[in-house]
Amino acid sequence: MRLEGKTAIVTGAGSGFGAGIAQAFAREGAAVMVADINAKAAESVASQISGIAQVVDVSDGASVAAMSKAAMDAWGQIDILVNNAGVTHLPTPLEDVSEADFDRVLAVNAKSVYLTAREIVPVMKQAGKGAILNIASTAGVSPRPRLNWYNASKGWMITATKAMAVELAPSGIRVNALNPVAGETPLLKSFMGEDTPEIRAKFLATIPLGRFSTPDDMGNAALYLCSDEASMITGVAMEVDGGRCI
């Protein structure tokens, strides 16, 4: 029960890594808000973990403000924030990515971190404590071709994590990131362009441990970084990638 008595918002928690993180937090005693743009998905995961389902568009300021307010109305405190919601563009030469796709990737992957910080950091500052976890990617460390603007958004997220960590440390707020390699999530097909045995084999050949990241892998890593066991750890972008970035 490492998170007993703590509250956590996990964005993009209706599926994939976010669901794995929400489930791990709930198992360890946290009250969890399952926030997702897909209402049915959020409700499904929330019902499994006795959590709160919240519909949110993390790229929209009013929607993020409503999410924060709902959490405060329910709990009166926000101890943990996981910025997990993310999107990508399809594998495409960088000059051929549409402006609409570029804007969407940066809004969901980057602007969302600013919007959630704007609402939730003041709450954590008032409490004198808090843990923020940004789900970045190995793409921000070791970019793959044809995912250029997705790679860039995750590199932004890693830099934002370190900058936030330095600024917020005096307020008792820790900020870390996780860098997963691709996993069995709704985004996998988008990363690969198409999902065939041949493309999977080629993708897996770049991962020394020979498998994708799983929601459980992410849940366990997130649990550590957001628990008091990691009280001396801030500004870290930890790879959960089976050796992909070596």
Rank of each mutant, 00 (worst) to 15 (best):
Ala70Gln: 12
Ile135Thr: 08
Ala136Gly: 05
Pro122Met: 06
Val123Pro: 01
Gln126Ser: 14
Ala127Leu: 09
Ala139Gly: 13
Arg144Thr: 13
Tyr114Val: 15
Leu106Gly: 10
Ile78Pro: 01
Val105Trp: 03
Ala152Cys: 12
Asp73Phe: 11
Val82Thr: 01
Met72Ser: 11
Gln77Ala: 14
Leu133Glu: 06
Ile80Gly: 01
Arg144Gln: 12
Ser153Val: 02
Lys129Thr: 15
Val82Met: 01
Asp103Gly: 05
Val123Ser: 04
Ala100Tyr: 07
Ser142Leu: 14
Ala66Tyr: 05
Glu95His: 14
Leu133Phe: 09
Ala107Cys: 12
Val97Asn: 05
Ala131Thr: 11
Ser137Phe: 02
Pro145Tyr: 06
Lys111Pro: 04
Val108Ile: 10
Leu81Val: 14
Gly128Phe: 08
Ala100Gly: 10
Ile120Lys: 01
Leu115Ala: 04
Glu99Met: 13
Glu119Met: 09
Thr92Glu: 03
Ser137Arg: 02
Met72Glu: 11
Lys69Thr: 13
Ala117Met: 12
Ala71Val: 03
Glu119Tyr: 07
Lys125Asp: 08
Asn83Pro: 05
Pro93Phe: 12
Ala100Val: 15
Arg118Ser: 13
Gly76Phe: 08
Lys111Trp: 00
Lys125Cys: 11
Glu99Asp: 14
Ile135Met: 12
Asp101Phe: 04
Ile132His: 02
Ala70Leu: 13
Asp96Thr: 11
Ser137His: 04
Asn84Leu: 03
Val108Gly: 02
Gly76Val: 10
Lys69Ser: 12
Gly86Phe: 00
Gln77Arg: 15
Arg104Glu: 02
Leu133Tyr: 05
Trp149Pro: 02
Asp101His: 04
Gly76Glu: 09
Ala136Lys: 00
Asp96Phe: 11
Ile80Ala: 03
